[in-house]
């Protein structure tokens, strides 16, 4: 593990959804300029983790803390966390009919006291993830393919410039070229300005492009194992059930494909 200054610290995070405890004590530290992957089967709590980090209403935090750049965010509303540098690219980005992406970017920057970038800079930012300029004037996520949505998320990340980005299944819907473009853009943020990335993924495919410094395996609401990139390869061989058996842990959700993570 590198000795980078911690950008995101998650300590003993426990949370319940609809009365059921889904996160049972998650510990993670992502340094500035690092990419960490969180892997796990359906139902392991991956998406729940992303929403609890963002403070989504309806998720009950039972204990633990979330810090960005050393500041505790646990008591803050979602929009306040975002302004303090936390960014979520959700698994299924929400359609906002009638609201152009350009307007969302302008408001997101205004919320941070920043002016909207010049039009040509936005066009260039869109081009960097393979999106045409007209895309900026289309309503956010409306009638987009899965891949377009993911490109849009990374475009927003590049414009908003957060400290910490939580990317939930950022690879879904993308073809190989799309995945490469998106990963390249994220890695540029990581290298150039020390963005910390927590990449949640189901499949190791993403990690061949977005090579992680650390891999964490989430099973039954806990991080059961952490390691280097080789852990992802190992998982590909053994599967989550194999890992759970080897570790002697209860792999809740490991055999429940299709349940929300």
């Amino acid at each position: 593990m590198s000795g980078a200054r911690p950008a995101l610290e998650v300590r003993g995070l426990r949370a319940a959804v609809a009365g059921r405890e889904v996160l049972r004590g998650v510990d993670l530290v992502v340094g500035a300029g690092e990419v960490h992957a969180v892997m796990g089967p359906n139902g392991a709590g991956k998406s729940t983790l992303s929403h609890v980090l963002m403070g989504r209403p309806g998720y009950e935090v039972l204990g633990g803390s979330v810090l960005v750049d050393g500041e505790e965010l646990g008591h803050l509303a979602t929009w306040e966390r975002a302004r303090r540098g936390l960014f979520l690219a959700p698994q299924v980005p929400t359609e906002v009919p009638g609201v152009p992406l350009r307007a969302v970017l302008a408001e997101a920057l205004a919320a941070r006291g920043e002016a909207a970038p010049p039009a040509d800079a936005l066009v260039a930012a869109a081009g960097a993830v393979g999106l045409a300029p007209a895309f900026l004037d289309r309503p956010v996520n409306v009638d987009l393919s899965g891949g377009e949505r993911k490109r849009s998320e990374v475009l927003q990340l590049a414009v908003v410039r957060p400290r910490v980005a939580v990317l939930d299944e950022i690879d879904s819907g993308l073809d190989v070229d799309g995945l490469r473009a998106v990963a390249r853009r994220v890695l540029a943020e990581v290298r150039e300005r020390g963005l910390a990335v927590l990449a949640i993924t189901h499949y190791p495919r993403l990690l061949s492009e977005l090579v992680p410094d650390r891999v964490h395996v989430l099973l039954g609401g806990r991080v059961v194992q952490s390691g280097g990139p080789e852990l992802a390869e190992e998982l590909e061989r053994t599967g989550y059930a194999g890992l759970a058996a080897a570790l002697g842990v209860e792999a809740e959700g490991a055999d429940e494909p299709g349940t929300a993570g």
Partner: peptide, 9 residues
């Protein structure tokens, strides 16, 4: 919520 994730109150 989606817009809040962008920092929009």
């Amino acid at each position: 919520y989606y817009l809040a994730c962008r920092g929009i109150e």
